[in-house]
Amino acid sequence: MNNEIKKYYLFSPSLRIAHWIWALAISVLFITGIYIGNPFFIGNVGYSATFGDLHALTMNYIRLLHFSFGYILLAALILRFSIIPFRKADRLIIPKFWTKAYWENAFDTLKNYLFITKSHRPYIRNPLARTAYFGLFLLLIFEVITGFAMYGRSNPGGFWDKLFGWIIPALGGEYQVHRWHHIVAWLIILFVVIHVYMVIREDILEKDGEVSSMVNGNKFFEHTPADITDV
């Protein structure tokens, strides 16, 4: 290997912690959420309904998990957004639609992904990925707002209801909120599948340490990345 490969420290500990909390929280929230939407196994047999919780995996317990991880997801989102002002490399989730470079680099990457060109320029994070991450945050925020709005309606007029209750009439009633919460959950899982594939592909083809960068924060480039000014 040649010696010109340079190490770039990109991802702060807060960012990496937030990432892995989301990975866990999204997994738990998706599985428990699917069960809440359609309880496909019977929770409790043979015990009084009041005491079933002590003996079986019940809807009550699964809902508790769902709500708990909802709070955890929200906490990780707050952590992630609170570091944005302080460090340039933590702002890579913002797609710069207004710059010429964004569109040029987006087409450069897209052509490679569509097999029109054999490679794309090296990027710290290419514009397509930035856009996808930005979209993911919008989806997560939507899930948090709709989720806590529904949660808050158990106590109308309470904290969560006052904070996010407005979404219920905006979406045309609570039943519609359930539906959109459900649909967007699937969109997030769609993102997860593509995300996992794309980072593994990046790691294998570009050999830039993409996968391990979310553990140790470092990526490696032979040539200077096109978007180096962003970090």
């Binding site: 459900h182 649909i183 959950a185 699937w186 592909r201 083809l205």
Partner: peptide, 29 residues
Amino acid sequence: ADKVGAVAVGAAAAGAIAHGVISKIRSGK
């Protein structure tokens, strides 16, 4: 949502594998 979601995620996974294989072949060339 569940039926559509399962099909879409399955299709995305299959597409990712196919895309990955082609990417690897072209990259090798």
